[in-house]
């Protein structure tokens, strides 16, 4: 089986389990929830077909929804975030042959570009999740506070995880 498929499958299952078993139960200071399932969208290879990315993102969101009793909420947020992944990526990274087929991480993009890319995707996803959850612009202030808190927490968590995973992987390959 293709190594890349196994990698994506492991990523899918790991993120799903981490989200539903650990991070679903955390809400820091009442304003910051770690929404780590966005990491799947962030870390899938950039040349992955949009239809496949949409399908996997939708299924991941749906699985989290089923376990969290919020049917449709994460599935919708994941689908919408998946569709803007490429435009966001190419907003920070130039169209280049070297960028074809890469998996976005600190090593491939560099810390600065990767941080921008990760922060934007996380921000969009957090905003979508809380907008759909509140479903009313009368609560826009709370939506923004929760979005900022959750984006910051998720960004730090994912950046930390990414550093550990990537650096360990880099050492192993050397």
């Amino acid at each position: 089986m293709d190594k890349r498929i196994i990698h994506i499958a492991v990523l899918f299952v790991t993120i799903l389990l981490a989200q539903i078993l650990i991070f679903n139960h955390i809400l820091l200071f009442g304003i910051a929830a770690p929404l780590v399932l966005v990491y799947f969208i962030v870390r899938t290879p950039i040349d992955m077909g949009t239809n496949i990315l949409l399908t996997l993102s939708f299924l991941l969101g749906l699985a989290v929804d089923i376990c969290s009793d919020t049917p449709g909420l994460n599935a919708l947020a994941c689908t919408l975030t998946a569709v803007v992944k490429k435009p966001v990526f190419y907003a920070y990274v130039q169209h280049d042959d070297r960028m074809k087929g890469i998996t976005p991480n600190i090593l491939t993009l560099g810390l600065a570009d990767y941080c921008k890319y990760l922060f934007t995707i996380t921000g969009i996803f957090s905003f979508l999740v809380f907008s759909i959850e509140y479903f009313s612009f009368a609560d826009i202030k709370e939506i923004f506070i929760l979005t900022l808190g959750s984006t910051a927490l998720t960004f730090l968590l994912l950046l930390g995880t990414d550093s550990l995973v990537t650096i360990r992987h880099d050492r192993r390959s050397k």
Binding site: T55, G72, A75, T79, F135
Partner: peptide, 28 residues
């Protein structure tokens, strides 16, 4: 235009789930 059809399908399914099984969103 398969991407747009797939996208529209998943959004539609998500919205149906959202409005059917979430009392608050359904009411809004």
């Amino acid at each position: 235009y398969s991407t747009w059809f797939v996208f529209a399908f998943y959004v539609l399914v998500s919205l149906i789930l959202l409005f059917s099984f979430n009392t608050y969103q359904g009411a809004v």
